[in-house]
Write a protein that binds this DNA or RNA. Sequence first.
DNA 1: GTACGTGCAAAGGTTTTGCATTACA
DNA 2: TGTAATGCAAAACCTTTGCACGTAC
Lengths: 133, 133
Amino acid sequence: MMIDKYRDIGLKLTPQRIAILDYLEGNKDHPSADEIYKAISKRFPTMSFATVYNTLSTLREKGAVLELTIDPAKKRYDPETSRHNHLICVTCKKVVDIPVDFALELPSGARHGFTVMSNHVEFYGLCPACKKQ
Amino acid sequence: MMIDKYRDIGLKLTPQRIAILDYLEGNKDHPSADEIYKAISKRFPTMSFATVYNTLSTLREKGAVLELTIDPAKKRYDPETSRHNHLICVTCKKVVDIPVDFALELPSGARHGFTVMSNHVEFYGLCPACKKQ
DNA sequence: GTACGTGCAAAGGTTTTGCATTACA
DNA sequence: TGTAATGCAAAACCTTTGCACGTAC
């Protein structure tokens, strides 16, 4: 489980961090830092914003979560760190994983001298709930 | 030119808006609102932030600029509104246009009931300047 | 015991808003 | 002239930071 992954990285396992890891484990909602904070502080009232941000920042540095730049209003976090893409509702910003790998290659003429390392595809659309309105 | 496009939309052409349109015309830098403000206020000292944001917001609603959610720190704006993709330097956040259309299709099994409208590919890499360091 | 994490509050950066004034059409 | 944009300042958000205290190891 995720807690083992964290211990293997060699970081201190505090109750707050365990709560965050527990919340993220298998989470498919791509939550924001605020959502994570709100969810955990129900059961953990002394938890502070700074701890959430610190922990997310550490997890990102260790490659244990992805920081998604998908929603202009705030960063969102994804515990699924294997290569995948996303489908985003333009109305409610719901995000779902797309486990398909498109194996995109950039023609060398389009690389502008960059060393290309990776890519990410965002699909935009309307989710079932938003279509009804 | 862009000013004509703007007039055709039926909006008032103020000197401030003309300055913004002029700055964006053919601009390949994907500037942030702050960069637009700074560039224009050199020659137009009374220009306010609110006017830049109001104008960009109006242009976006009319489809005359794209708001890019590419840089976690701030929104960036792109006057090139035809379908294209982007290559981003992970170090300095330089963004260049990729005029290639990859014609990606999402397998229906991966659509989660969404109506898919469009997509956008982000390539990540190191630009020539950042590679040297 | 010590290095590192936590909590609190304040600050930083971007974007939005309210309202009186100004100016395009 | 009337409607809509501008300018200014304050506020709203999200995120980061400094520092004293607490705790995992």
